[in-house]
Computed example of a mutant assay.
Amino acid sequence: MRKSLMRLTLRQLQVFRSVCDSRSYSRAAEEMALTQPAVSLQIRQLEELVGQPLFEYVGKKLYLTEAAEALKRASTDIFQRLESLDMQLSDLQGSLQGQLNLAVESSAKYFVPHLFAAFKRQQPDVSLHLTVVNRSQVIKRLSDNRDDLVIMSLVPQDMALEFLPFLNNPIIAVAPPGHPLYRAAKLTLQDLEPYPLLVREPGSGTRKACEEYFQQKRAHFAQILEVTSLDAQKECVVAGLGLALLPRHAVSLELATGLLRELPVEELPLFRSWCAVHARGKRLTPVAQAFLAFIREERAQISALAERFAGTLPATTAGS
Score class of each variant (00 low, 15 high):
R2F: 08
M6R: 15
R11Y: 12
R11Q: 09
L13F: 02
R17H: 03
R17F: 05
D21Q: 14
S22W: 02
R23Y: 03
R27Q: 09
A29I: 11
A33N: 11
L34I: 05
L34N: 08
T35H: 06
Q36A: 05
A38F: 03
A38T: 15
L41A: 13
L46K: 05
E47P: 07
E48C: 14
E48M: 06
V50P: 06
V50F: 01
V50G: 11
Q52V: 04
L54M: 03
V58R: 15
V58Y: 08
L64Y: 00
T65F: 03
A68H: 01
L71D: 00
S75M: 06
Q80S: 07
Q80N: 12
E83A: 12
L85V: 08
L85M: 03
D86N: 04
M87N: 04
Q93M: 05
G94E: 11
L96F: 04
Q97N: 08
G98I: 00
V104G: 03
A108D: 02
K109R: 09
P113F: 11
L115R: 04
K120V: 07
P124K: 09
D125K: 08
H129V: 11
V132N: 02
V133L: 13
V138G: 05
V138S: 15
I139Y: 11
K140D: 10
R141H: 13
D144A: 15
D148P: 05
S153Q: 10
S153M: 14
L154Y: 05
L154V: 13
L154W: 03
Q157I: 02
Q157D: 14
F163D: 11
F166R: 00
L167D: 00
N168I: 02
N168L: 11
I172G: 00
P177T: 02
P180T: 10
Y182T: 15
A185V: 03
Q190P: 00
E201C: 07
G203Y: 07
R207L: 15
K208P: 00
F214D: 11
Q215L: 13
K217S: 07
R218E: 13
F221P: 13
Q223A: 15
I224V: 11
T228Y: 04
Q233A: 07
E235G: 07
L241P: 01
P247Y: 10
R248F: 05
R248Y: 09
H249S: 15
A250L: 06
L253Q: 10
L255Y: 09
R261N: 12
L270D: 02
S273Q: 13
C275A: 12
A276K: 02
R280W: 04
K282F: 08
R283P: 02
P286G: 04
A290Y: 01
F291V: 14
L292Q: 12
E298S: 14
E298I: 05
A306V: 02
E307Q: 11
R308F: 06
A310N: 10
L313M: 15
